[in-house]
């Protein structure tokens, strides 16, 4: 900006921050491919694909669990986004009795630590025979992600407003078509943000899944954490690497799929 030299300490601070964020990722990437890394070497003496091979072994259990874990988290993410769109619409566009209470309830899970909430609801789910089932895990993940997704959708719904839909009505579009052709494309950035947010919250969950799933519902975090707890750096790092890369891949797919609806984005990329 105006005086570049005065920004120097700030720039150095940013560089240090970036280094601190990226260095551990480089280190675990190295570890994921390490066979031997004896004290006091600063680099591995010998590399191997042992860790990665174990995860993707043809008849191993890990890859199927990765897929089912991604499926579970995507289910949570989609449901969370849909419920958030509905709730945001109700709160922003309508007056109904109990609106303030609903507003509070939708944000309440943020006020209760997930450990406390998980132990409390565990007993309830046992009574409903939903403990140790994927459905139970999905429900609990969903409750935990909704405050975040509702917050995103609510802000966006407020800023888009009801005016565009009204314009669509008088031009002959039914309420459903108005939503589909006018509001939905405008809400898309928020929908993508909601889905990715809910996905990462669900996919990262360890404690809640452990408790509610009771070891019967296996997610990727559930098989990764024991290696970290044991301090097995090669396997732990291989799992962590797969965790991060699969997440980025899922995000990229969500983005591409949903952006196809949004022609505006495509066209502005051409320009």
């Amino acid at each position: 900006m105006k005086d570049i030299s005065s920004n120097k300490p700030l720039k150095i601070f940013i560089y240090i921050s970036l280094f601190v964020i990226l260095a551990p990722m480089v280190i675990i990437t190295l570890w994921a491919f390490t066979n031997q890394w004896p004290w006091p070497n600063l680099l591995p003496t010998n590399y191997s694909l042992r860790g990665i091979k174990e995860i993707f072994a043809p008849y191993g259990k890990v890859f199927p669990i990765l897929i089912s874990s991604i499926t579970l988290s995507l289910t949570v993410a989609l449901l969370s986004a849909i419920i958030a769109i509905m709730t945001a619409r109700a709160i922003v566009f309508y007056d109904f009795s109990g609106k303030e209470l609903l507003d509070f309830i939708s944000m309440a899970p943020n006020l209760v630590p997930s450990t406390v909430f998980a132990m409390g609801i565990h007993v309830v789910l046992i009574r409903m025979s939903l403990a140790n089932t994927p459905l139970g895990v999905i429900i609990v993940h969903l409750i935990y992600t909704l405050p975040y997704t509702i917050n995103i959708m609510r802000n966006l719904t407020e800023s888009i407003g009801v005016d565009m839909e009204h314009q669509a009505y008088v031009l002959g579009a039914s309420p459903w078509k108005s939503f589909l052709y006018v509001s939905f494309p405008l809400l898309l950035p928020g929908i993508i943000a909601s889905i990715t947010m809910a996905y990462i919250l669900s996919f990262s969950q360890y404690f809640v899944t452990l408790l509610i799933g009771g070891g019967k519902v296996m997610t990727f975090s559930m098989i990764m954490v024991p290696f970290i707890a044991k301090g097995d750096r090669t396997l732990g790092s291989a799992y962590a690497l797969v965790f991060v890369l699969s997440t980025l891949l899922v995000f990229a797919i969500i983005n591409t799929l949903l952006k196809k609806f949004q022609k505006r984005e495509e066209k502005s990329n051409w320009n």
């Binding site: 005016d163 002959g172 039914s174 108005s178 066209k267």
Partner: peptide, 29 residues
């Protein structure tokens, strides 16, 4: 319902749909 009345409003703020081209806006109805 409003969408069957054929009473069409042109609003002060125009309310063109930002995610559509001009032809798509006009042909929306």
């Amino acid at each position: 319902p409003p969408y069957k009345r054929k009473t069409v409003i042109v609003f002060q703020d125009f309310r063109l749909f930002p995610h559509m081209t001009i032809a798509e806006n006009i042909s929306f109805p």
